[in-house]
């Protein structure tokens, strides 16, 4: 505020209670008391500040006037990096480690009709299942792996005539197969 420059400025300062030199019975001080008393009485008429504040904030939000704080350019870069890192960590944590043959986690489908089912026990059921699937796919035969717990199931459909390579893969597991649907369960 500016310093009093003349009589008018002093009078305003007295009204504001900043200069009390002329005493309580001076005109400006009496006027000040009257104005303060009037304001006090009128302000008591207003009720419920909380509700009025909420109504105001609601309107400001609705009209989009409460803007979000702007980030500096480096802030956006940092936020983007952190977001990417967080997503990456989440994906790494939640996703199964990718198998070369694409293991589908869950129960194998329920097959109806005729199919041959075999069970192979070994120390590394997953590796064995993946090896079989890899070999079948290499021979041009469609095959899928399903994992449920420690059991890895390979489903495939063998067309006639069976190639020597395909027969050899199953024979290595001790299995004699014929054309048709084949399910092999690898268990520990």
């Amino acid at each position: 505020m500016t310093q009093p420059q003349d009589d008018l400025d002093r009078w305003l300062a007295e009204l504001a209670g900043q200069d009390m030199a002329r005493g309580a019975r001076s005109e400006p001080q009496a006027l000040r008391r009257v104005i303060l008393n009037e304001a006090s009485q009128q302000e008591q008429l207003a009720t419920d500040d909380d509700q009025a504040t909420e109504q105001l904030l609601f309107r400001l939000r609705r009209e989009g006037l409460l803007k979000r704080r702007r980030l500096p350019a480096w802030g956006y870069a940092l936020a983007a990096t952190l977001a990417a890192a967080a997503i990456g960590l989440f994906v790494l944590r939640e996703s199964p480690s990718p198998a070369p043959e694409g293991v589908a986690y869950g129960e194998p489908p329920i097959w109806r009709g005729a199919f041959a089912q075999f069970e192979v026990r070994g120390r590394a059921p997953r590796a064995s299942a993946e090896k079989l699937v890899g070999a079948l796919r290499a021979a041009g035969v469609q095959a899928d792996i399903y994992a449920l717990g420690a059991v890895y199931t390979v489903d495939t459909e063998l067309a006639a005539p069976l190639s020597a390579a395909v027969q050899a893969q199953f024979q290595a597991l001790g299995i004699a197969v014929k054309p048709g649907r084949v399910r092999v369960e690898f268990k520990p």
């Binding site: 505020m1 008018l8 504001a16 104005i35 304001a39």
Partner: peptide, 13 residues
């Protein structure tokens, strides 16, 4: 104007 001068300490400006 006088109320504001008394209540809010307003200067001439």
């Amino acid at each position: 104007a006088l109320r504001r001068a008394a209540l809010d300490g307003w200067s001439v400006r």
